[in-house]
Simulated assay, not measured.
Amino acid sequence: MSLPNIWHHRKVADTSAKGCEICFKPSTSVLITPDKQDFFYVCPAHLKDRGFCSPIIDHDAVAAKKKKEMDEEVERLKKEYEEKQRKKKEKEADKEKDNDKQKDKKDSKEKEEDNGEKKEESPSGDKGKSKDKNQAEVEEEPRVFALQRVFHQRRLDRKRQAEMAKRNRERLNNPNFFPSVPKDLP
C-alpha cells in the first residue's frame, strides 16, 4: 500500500487532543491524507520545522488571494476618495451657507442639523468594513504539507506493520492454519 506524501493540516477540539507523534505532548493539530487513509497528531511547532515537513504552496491560490486583496484595497480607496470629494463639496456649500447665514439665521440652523445627521451616518459604514476584514482573516484554507522522506517512510512502515499484524491475527483465528493431529497409528 502506498500513501501519497500529501498531508492536510486540520484542527480538532481541545477535548480530543492526543499526544504528538514526535514529542508526545498533547496537541490539537492533525495531519491527514486527502483520502483519509492515515492521520497522526503533531504539534504546530513541528509544522514549522523544515526537517520534519515542508509546506506545499499552491501558487495559483496565492496569486488569486493577492489579486482579491488588491481589488478590495482599490475599491476601499475609491470610496474614501469619493467621500473626501463629497465632504469638500459640502464644505464649499457650507461656506456659501455661511454667507446666507448673515442674511437669515433661522435657515442656517436647520441646514446645520441636516449636516450633523449626515456626519453620523458615515461612522456606521466604517464599522461594517472592520467586520468584513475580521471575516476575511477567519476564512483561511487548510495548509498542505509534504513530510520529509525519513518521516514519510516511517509512516509507511507503521502502516505495513499494522496490516501484517492484522493478517497474522486472522490466520491464528483460522483453524486450518495449524496442522492437524495424525489419525494413523505409528
Score class of each variant (00 low, 15 high):
Glu137Arg: 08
Asn99Pro: 01
Gln85Cys: 12
Gly116Val: 03
Lys48Glu: 05
Thr28His: 03
Gly19Met: 02
Lys18Gln: 15
Tyr41Ile: 03
Lys95Gly: 07
Gln37Gly: 12
Lys131Tyr: 11
Glu141Tyr: 04
Glu83His: 02
Asn176Asp: 14
Pro123Ala: 01
Lys18Arg: 12
Cys43Pro: 01
Arg154Asp: 13
Ser180Gly: 08
Lys109Met: 01
Val138Asn: 09
Glu139Leu: 07
Ala17His: 00
Asp184Glu: 11
Lys79Ser: 08
Arg50Ser: 10
Lys66Cys: 09
His8Gly: 06
Ala162Glu: 14
Glu92Asn: 07
His8Lys: 05
Lys65Phe: 12
Ala146Trp: 00
Ile32Thr: 05
Leu147Phe: 03
Val150Trp: 09
Glu82Gln: 10
Pro123Trp: 08
Asp49Ala: 08
Gln148Val: 11
Leu47Ala: 04
Gly116His: 08
Glu21Tyr: 04
Asp100Lys: 14
Leu77Gly: 00
Asp71Arg: 05
Glu69Ala: 14
Glu170Ala: 11
Asp38Tyr: 13
Val42Gly: 00
Pro179Ser: 08
Glu120Ala: 10
Ile57Tyr: 00
Lys97Asp: 13
Asp14Tyr: 05
Arg171Lys: 15
Met1Phe: 08
Glu75Asp: 11
Ala64Leu: 14
Phe52Glu: 01
Asn134Val: 07
Ser122Val: 10
Val30Ile: 15
Lys106Glu: 12
Lys88Cys: 05
Val181Asp: 03
Asp100Leu: 14
Arg86Tyr: 11
Lys36Tyr: 03
Lys183Asn: 06
Thr33Cys: 11
Arg171Cys: 03
Ile32Ser: 02
Lys25Gly: 00
Ser29Arg: 01
Asn168His: 03
Lys129Thr: 13
Ala93Trp: 04
Ser130Leu: 15
Asp71Leu: 13
His46Ile: 02
Val144His: 01
Glu113Arg: 05
Pro175Val: 12
Val181Asn: 02
Ser16Ala: 15
Asp35Gly: 10
Asp14Trp: 02
Glu141Cys: 06
Glu21Arg: 13
Lys89Asn: 13
Thr15Ala: 14
Arg86Cys: 10
Tyr41Thr: 04
Met70Tyr: 04
Lys68His: 07
Glu96Thr: 04
Ala146Gly: 10
Lys105Glu: 09
Cys53Gly: 07
Lys67Met: 09
Gln161Ser: 13
His9Asp: 09
Ala93Ser: 06
Glu141Pro: 01
Ile32Phe: 03
Pro34Lys: 09
Lys18Tyr: 11
Asp58Arg: 11
Lys183Glu: 15
Glu72Ala: 11
Pro186Asp: 12
Ala146Met: 15
Lys87Pro: 00
Asn168Met: 08
Cys20Glu: 00
Asn5Gln: 08
Leu156Lys: 02
Lys103Asp: 15
Val30Gly: 01
Gly19Gln: 07
Arg154Pro: 06
Pro142Gln: 06
Asp114Tyr: 06
Phe178Glu: 06
Asp157Ala: 07
Pro186Val: 15
Lys97Arg: 11
Phe24Glu: 06
Asp38Pro: 00
Leu31Met: 13
Glu170Cys: 01
